[in-house]
Amino acid sequence: MKKLKKLAAAAVIGTAAIAALSLGGCAKKEQGTIKIASKPMTEQYVLTEIIGQLIEHDLGVKVEITKGVGGGTTNIQPALLKGDFDLYPEYTGTGWLTVLKKEQENDSDVLYENLQKGYEEMGLHWTGLYGFQNSYTLAVRKEAADQYSLKTFTDLAAVSDQLVFGGNPDYMEREDGFNYLASAYNMNFKDVKDIDIALKYTAMADKQIDVTNAYTTDAQLSVADVSLLEDDQHIFATYYGATVVRQDTLKKYPKLSETLEKLTGQISDDEMRAMNYAVEVDQKDEKDVAKDFLTEKGLLK
């Protein structure tokens, strides 16, 4: 991510140019409604609340959030192109692989630069790289990670015959799931178990399994006694979170670009995990979690 900040800065210039095309000045309160969509997952509910509350605070524009759009990107992307939505939070790897249908690109800087170009051709713009990425990783019981000094997937491969892997069924069956991982790193676990996704970390705490697949922003990682390993061969795409917005929406609301860019680099993996945990486990309302986050960051006055 060494160049992503520079690319994000370039995006500010680009959106400023888009805003300059708009006629007239910007009143204290802009008229209209900005429509935001989210995928059906806790993280997206929190992100859309963060974005929505920040827009209402900065621009005084009414925000309408549609949460949990079935099919996620598959249905949100065409609706965004039609103008049914103005913006939504997305992940770079998803945009690259699913929307643009490109081959995997392991250099996150090259990916983002070309992703931006591809989306601009569709009248869309990426902005406000949040800082975290929701990517595939492996979680290992901390006791086992310490015992074998595990830091990377390669480290794990060397001792995999001493450990038990447990994964949720869909991960075990997917093309880019367990078999892909095991083949790429030549892993040969002592045993492999199917574990319900909701029970993975419990099974690990009970020492039924030693290793499991995870997403870097899984809520349970906030409290689970595990170590996350580095995909040192970069076999998985990077999934940095950012906002995808229609160019004509940026023209209509000249200050929107500046507002969305305020989220650049503001959310770490740990912070996103903690917010997911607050909603999923502590049963807090995502609106309150978002407000607390924005207040703590000094983005709400």
Rank of each mutant, 00 (worst) to 15 (best):
N188R: 11
N168F: 14
A182Q: 09
V164S: 01
E143A: 12
S135Q: 11
M172N: 05
L156V: 02
V140A: 03
S149R: 15
L150M: 05
E175W: 04
A157Y: 10
A205T: 12
T152C: 14
Q147D: 02
K193R: 12
D191Y: 00
V159Y: 07
D161Q: 10
E143I: 08
K190W: 00
S135E: 10
D196P: 10
V164K: 04
R174I: 07
Y180E: 07
F165I: 02
N188W: 03
D176I: 12
F153Y: 15
A158S: 15
L199K: 14
R174P: 02
Y148M: 10
Y136H: 12
F178Y: 14
T152P: 08
D155V: 09
L156C: 03
E175Y: 11
Y185S: 09
M187T: 10
K190F: 00
G177M: 08
D206T: 12
F132V: 14
A198I: 10
A203T: 05
A144T: 13
D194F: 01
Y136M: 15
F165R: 01
Y201I: 09
Y136V: 09
M204N: 02
E173T: 11
S135L: 08
D196L: 10
N179H: 12
Q147M: 09
N186W: 00
E143M: 04
K200T: 14
E173Y: 01
K193G: 01
D146R: 05
L163N: 02
K151D: 04
F189Q: 00
V164F: 00
Y185E: 07
A157F: 07
Y180V: 09
K142Y: 07
L181K: 06
T152D: 07
D196A: 15
F153Q: 06
M187R: 05
A145C: 13
F153I: 09
Q133R: 13
K151M: 08
M204T: 02
S183D: 15
S183R: 12
R174C: 02
V140S: 04
F178T: 08
P169V: 02
D176G: 09
A184E: 15
E173I: 06
F189W: 01
N179S: 13
D176H: 14
D176L: 12
L138K: 06
A184C: 09
K190N: 04
F165S: 03
V140L: 05
L181E: 01
D176C: 07
L199Y: 02
F132T: 14
Q162P: 08
V192D: 00
A158F: 04
T154R: 08
D146S: 11
